[in-house]
C-alpha cells in the first residue's frame, strides 16, 4: 500500500468494475429497449405523454412531490403493494421508458402514485372531471378532501380573485374554513392544471409479457383499504 500508483490503480479498478457491472452492462441490455405493442389494444406502451402532462411532470419535479411519493409497485410479497390496490401488477423497466427524469421516490410519506390515474375510481372519460376536481381541491388544501392529511397545501398554485361577472366554472368548490371570503373565488393556475394532467397520466397497469396482470383467484383476501375513492363519493377513513 505504499506504492502510490498501485493505490491509485486499485481504487480506479474497484470503482470502474462497479460502473461496468451496475451501469454499463444493464444499459447495454435494456438501455435501448423500445416501446412494445400491447396485445389487447394494439397500442404502443408506454404511450407518449400529452404535452400538458409533460409540463406537469416538471411541476412535480420542481415541487419535490417525489420526496413523499413513490411511483413503484413491488411484486407480490413486498409490503402488500398489490393488495393495497396500488396497481394490478408490479412495475418493470418498461413502465418508466418515457420518464425524464425518473421520479421513483424512496420514501412513502403519502401513498404510491404509479397508478393514480386509474386507482381512484374508474378511469373512463366520464369520471375525468370529478377526478380533476378532486385533485385540484386536494392540492389546494389536502384536508378539504382528506381529514388528518399531512401532505402540504399548495395554495400558491391557485389564485384567489374577486368574482366579477358571476363565478367562473373552474372555481374550486370549497366549504367551511377553506372557503375564501364572500365575493372571492379560488381558481387553479396553469401549474395546478398541468400537474393534475400529469397525475392523470400516471398508470402502469397494462399487462406486459414480463409482468402479466394475473386476475386474482376468486377466493382472494379482501382488498386493502385504499386512501380515497371518488367513485364512492369521498375519502374512506
Amino acid at each position: 500500500m505504499n506504492s502510490t500508483p498501485l493505490l491509485f490503480l486499485g481504487i480506479l479498478a474497484g470503482l470502474a468494475a462497479s460502473w461496468w457491472g451496475m451501469v454499463v452492462a444493464p444499459k447495454l441490455q435494456i438501455g435501448s429497449a423500445p416501446t412494445v405493442v400491447l396485445k389487447e389494444t394494439g397500442q404502443h406502451y408506454p404511450p407518449t405523454r400529452p404535452g400538458v402532462a409533460q409540463q406537469g411532470a416538471e411541476v412535480y419535479r420542481s415541487l419535490g412531490c417525489n420526496t413523499c411519493h413513490s411511483q413503484i409497485v413491488r411484486p407480490e410479497g413486498y409490503g402488500h403493494d398489490l393488495l393495497r390496490g396500488w396497481g394490478p401488477r408490479r412495475t418493470v423497466a418498461q413502465d418508466y421508458l418515457r420518464d425524464q427524469p425518473i421520479m421513483l421516490g424512496s420514501v412513502r410519506v403519502g401513498p404510491d402514485l404509479a397508478n393514480i390515474a386509474t386507482r381512484m375510481g374508474s378511469g373512463d372519460s366520464n369520471a375525468q372531471p370529478a377526478m380533476v376536481a378532486y385533485h385540484l381541491k386536494h392540492l389546494y388544501h389536502p384536508r378539504t378532501v382528506m381529514e388528518g392529511s399531512v401532505m402540504p397545501a399548495y395554495p400558491f398554485l391557485f389564485e384567489k380573485r374577486r368574482i366579477v361577472e358571476g363565478p367562473s366554472p373552474d372555481a374550486l368548490k370549497l366549504e367551511g374554513a377553506y372557503a375564501p371570503e364572500a365575493g372571492y373565488e379560488v381558481v387553479p393556475k396553469e401549474e395546478a392544471r398541468v400537474l393534475v394532467a400529469y397525475l392523470l397520466s400516471l398508470k402502469s397497469s397494462a399487462s406486459l409479457v414480463e409482468a402479466p396482470v394475473i386476475p386474482p383467484p376468486t377466493n382472494a383476501p379482501v382488498k386493502a383499504a385504499n386512501t380515497a375513492s371518488i367513485a364512492t363519493g369521498g375519502p374512506s377513513r
Binding site: 462497479s18 460502473w19 451496475m22 451501469v23 444493464p26 444499459k27 435494456i30 438501455g31 423497466a93 418498461q94 413502465d95 418508466y96 421508458l97 418515457r98 420518464d99 425524464q100 427524469p101 425518473i102 421513483l104
Partner: peptide, 18 residues
C-alpha cells in the same frame, strides 16, 4: 450520463442510485 437524452427510465434510476 444523466445529461444525455438517450439514457432512459430505469437506466437513469441505476445511474443516479449508483
Amino acid at each position: 450520463m444523466l445529461g444525455g437524452a438517450d439514457v432512459r427510465g430505469s437506466i437513469q434510476l441505476l445511474i443516479q442510485r449508483w
